[in-house]
Simulated scan of single mutants.
Amino acid sequence: MSGTADIVPVTLHGPAGPLAAWECAPLPAVTVRGTAVLVPGFTGSKEDFEAMLPLLAAAGFRAIAYDQRGQWQSAGPDDPAGYTLGDFAGDLVGVAEQVSSDAPVHLVGHSFGGYVARAALLRNPERFRSLTLLASGPSSVRDINFPPPQLVAQMIEAGGQQAIWEQMSAAMTALATMTAARQEFLHTRILTTKKANLLGILRTMETPADDAAALQASGVPILVGYGDTGDLWSPDVHERFAADLGARRVVYAGVGHLPNEERPQQVCADLIDFWSEVDARV
């Protein structure tokens, strides 16, 4: 579309192999204000941020989203042991260094991507200007409307990627934004994502991070954004977590676990406002 920045496929380097990414850079007439890296969650991919990337670029932020190791179009090991939180966090730190070697980046993590973002920030806080946790609560074993990770892993061990698709597809089909083409893509994506990725993430989910104090002590500004209807974590859990983090908080009325897809314009407006405030302090 004329006047709108294009999303360009790029390949980033990861210790486990190439990482597929999308980049959306501001048009030449737009002043570049910084770089943002967006990290998808469990069963997700860069496509989860498709509506957001051009909006962020229009505001002057070079925006990069990538498939984590073993997700969709990214390479990854065939052994679940190669998908520890440390592995994911190391990939993210490497991505930040590749896309912005001379300045810290604004970091956005959706759901499990928020866990990865938290771990990466604590590993190398100097690489990140801010952290946004989007529909990403404190833990996957406490205060969450999600089956125990061990049970989900057993289901995948027995039935493969198709088994988790059958569990998730009913909820996905109910989304107002869902089309037949989108549903077909999501099905293909889950079947293509490595089984080892899914099992490795579920193993990682079994151990709560309990990192709120360390994140707050890092001094990196934090934003917590979530919907108030049907997210995996109830609003009061998100609210408590934001308080523990000393974080700014935004709530999306009538939205569940996918504010990035259901309210991309509002999410981007909140991100731009938050990042502008953070950058003004520097």
Rank of each mutant, 00 (worst) to 15 (best):
Q161E: 09
A280Q: 14
M178H: 01
G219Y: 13
A180Q: 07
E126W: 12
V220I: 15
V278H: 12
A81D: 15
M1D: 11
Y226N: 09
H187K: 07
V39N: 06
A214G: 13
K195A: 07
D143I: 15
Y83G: 02
E261R: 04
L191Y: 04
K46G: 00
A58R: 11
D6H: 09
I164Q: 03
G3F: 12
A243V: 13
L131I: 15
G160R: 13
I190S: 03
A36F: 07
T177L: 04
V237G: 07
P125F: 15
T132V: 12
M205D: 06
H257R: 07
R127S: 05
S140P: 05
P40K: 02
T188D: 14
L186R: 01
T193Q: 04
T11M: 05
V105R: 01
S2Q: 11
I64N: 00
P221L: 11
G227Q: 02
W22N: 00
N197T: 15
L271W: 06
L53Q: 01
Q73C: 13
D79Y: 15
Y115S: 14
I190E: 04
A213M: 13
M52T: 07
V251T: 11
A170L: 12
N145M: 14
R33I: 11
L92V: 15
E47L: 01
T35S: 02
L107A: 05
W72M: 04
G246F: 02
G246C: 07
A243R: 13
R127W: 04
D78C: 03
R189L: 02
A212Y: 06
P235F: 06
F61A: 04
E126M: 14
A181N: 00
S45N: 06
G160M: 09
G137N: 07
Q73W: 15
T179C: 00
V108N: 02
P148M: 14
T173V: 08
L19V: 04
F112G: 06
Y115E: 11
F61G: 01
V251N: 08
M205W: 00
T207K: 09
G230N: 06
T4C: 15
Q266G: 15
L232Q: 04
Y66Q: 12
A213H: 14
L107V: 05
D91W: 11
G230L: 03
C268K: 08
H238A: 09
A25W: 08
S136F: 08
W22V: 01
P9A: 13
T173Y: 09
A253H: 14
A5K: 06
G44M: 04
A25Q: 14
E166V: 08
L107S: 00
S169H: 03
T84W: 10
V99W: 03
Q150W: 09
K195R: 14
L215I: 10
F42S: 00
T35L: 04
R62Y: 10
T4W: 11
V267W: 01
A36P: 04
G227C: 03
A280T: 13
A174M: 07
D91A: 07
A181H: 01
P9Q: 11
A16G: 10
G225W: 00
G82L: 14
T11L: 05
D6W: 08
A269K: 06
A5Y: 01
F49C: 03
G246D: 04
A212L: 05
G200E: 06
A75I: 07
S140H: 11
C24N: 13
P40F: 00
S140C: 12
A212G: 06
Q266W: 14
E47A: 02
K194D: 06
G70K: 08
W22C: 01
G90W: 04
